[in-house]
Design a protein around this nucleic acid. Structure first.
Lengths: 333, 333
DNA sequence: GTTAGCAGTCGGTAGGATCGAGTGCCAACC
DNA sequence: GGTTGGCACTCGATCCTACCGACTGCTAAC
């Protein structure tokens, strides 16, 4: 909807503002490669862009800064950005050596992503509910306390403490576990179906109780979120109050998960300012990418930075990391 | 070593500075309860306190602020502080309802502590190495990948991914696990002793391999640290650079663990500014308390705030929470 | 040893001048 | 008609100065 030249001018403003954090004047834009007209012409177009809502002026005699709408246009107009050589080298190296516990790997992924972009990185891990149970075990901790341990197909471990109604020795627990295993192993944790009658009454009562615990949603809503690089995020802002309120968001895991899920569900890969739907993130932008394991979306990676973030780089990094992470997680299963 | 009156004056300065963050003048000190002399006398003593290194003057014609040495004297002179009613009520309520996974409980404890003090809270969990193995299991994830899952006496679960040298079916894994269990269950995870010869050659080779993995220190050094309330910490400082560097520290789990351990090992319950041994924490103070399970120190709780923190409150909160946490964790075993 | 009084210091704030980056507009130009 | 150079104008940022006020250190009296 913007003509060629205005689009170039908008792009020049965004790019310079991202770099300098200073309002951009017509002179600078005219000097930018890709803009071949005089500063007077730029001024005319910038005035128009302001009226149309793409740019704003902090005060009369200052340059322009992009509005949310301006960033949005800029982002939408980006051609598929690609990662520079050294960065993609880092990504490759990381995933080549990645191994071990899934949680550790997801946490390390936030390190990688944060290091690549210099913003805060977030990784939402696969929901345990969706993974198939590979093994189930009951371990007694105290006379009336047992720990239910379920190993899932992707290597995650889900555990629930169970307060038993009656004393149980190891043999009984073992019986219950064996009985449950027969019905639960191979099924997704989230859809634990009916379990048939148990061999003995004592076992049966306990089976029922354990099954209830198993079927109940886990304490943490079954979501696993890893955050890293909050300090890098802090460096992007100069008002400590902004930093504080963003930190408050990042500390609430449930909020972070919901936020990412919302953005992904809306089909976006970037949420700018109020597009995030969170007031404290008005000065932030969120770049996300879902990742898939065996063709199914199971999680999300993302970075959180200032609205004036380096979108091309962040988009490329998030896309590549999401893709590689999904591929890596698909290998095991 | 300070006479009565100087001590009162120092205390008055520290208390007011903690509240206002403004240099404290002689007039204010003279008006403080506990100081019965005129401002002129206070001035004389403050000059002396400055020479002795307890106070500093940001500039001539300003009030005084406490130095590290001043805070240190103040803290050492504190009589065992106690928590106010509503706070101890909160602590009691928390531990009365606390239940479930140990990790979740430790994480919730950081919430509690952060909420009580309005600073960042840290809890270092019991090292898995020290806990006795209650159950051990091997679960196959892929033809040559197995997950070793050890349930520990305190309800924690330790897991290690094992890349097998040879293919293994469930029966073989089960054999190996059974064999290992016999030798490992009941022992501390950290001191997995020799395991006798296995029934069959195939089993034996795998037993050896798994035993190696089991004996190796875990990826995360066996320490488990939970941090919360970084946003509250941020609110205590007005230089974003300070916030950033403190966040950088808090993000490095290993550094945090080492830091707390060092402080506890030195027999301190408060580390002020450079006493922490970390340059970025020069403006911070750390209040810590170890907690014991069955009489043995297994972890640490602490809060991190500005040097001008509310020491009495923080000390009381950390002490009480540490004590209750230890007691709560002792129950189960 | 303590206190009242007083001169002196210095950061913080307010008012005013200046500077300069940047704008909007207009007239000329292609 | 779109583009451009020129020009008057705006307004934040910077610097200076004056001033205020919260302190201090010192001295002399108690």
């Amino acid at each position: 909807m913007l003509d060629e030249r205005k689009a170039s001018i908008l792009r020049a403003v965004v790019e310079e503002y991202i770099q300098t954090a200073q309002p951009v004047g017509s002179g600078h834009v005219a000097a930018a490669p890709g803009v071949q007209v005089s500063s007077a012409t730029v001024r005319n177009d910038m005035a128009a862009l302001e009226i149309e809502g793409f740019l704003a002026q902090p005060h009369t005699s200052a340059g322009r800064i992009p509005t949310e709408k301006g960033y949005r246009y800029f982002v939408d107009a980006l051609t598929e950005p690609s990662l520079d050589r050294s960065a993609s080298q880092r990504v490759r190296a990381f995933f080549d050596q990645a191994h071990g516990e899934i949680e550790q790997m997801l946490a390390d992924t936030t390190h990688l992503l944060s290091g690549l972009t210099d913003y805060a990185a977030v990784v939402v891990g696969p929901a345990h509910e969706a993974a198939r149970v590979r093994s189930l075990q009951l371990v007694g901790l105290a006379p009336r306390v047992a720990l239910l341990v379920a190993v899932l197909g992707n290597g995650a471990v889900e555990k629930r403490t169970i307060e038993l109604d009656a004393d149980a020795d190891d043999a009984l627990l073992s019986d219950v576990a064996t009985h449950l295993s027969a019905h639960v192993v191979g099924q997704p944790l989230g859809s634990v179906a009916l379990v048939g009658p148990a061999p003995s009454p004592a076992t049966d009562a306990m089976v029922t109780q354990v099954k209830e615990v198993l079927a109940a949603p886990s304490d943490d809503d079954g979501d696993h979120v890893f955050v890293n690089g909050a300090s890098r995020m802090a460096a992007s802002f100069d008002a400590v109050e902004t930093v504080r309120s963003v930190l408050t968001i990042l500390e609430q895991q449930l909020v972070v998960v919901t936020l990412l899920r919302d953005v992904v569900d809306r089909g976006l890969n970037v949420a700018i300012g109020t597009e995030t739907g969170m007031q404290p993130l008005a000065d932030c932008a969120l770049v996300v990418a879902p990742y898939t394991v065996d063709g199914e979306q199971v999680g999300t990676v993302g970075v959180l930075g200032p609205t004036r973030m380096n979108y091309p780089q962040a988009l490329a990094a998030v896309a590549v990391v999401g893709q590689r992470l999904g591929r890596r997680l698909s290998e095991g299963s």
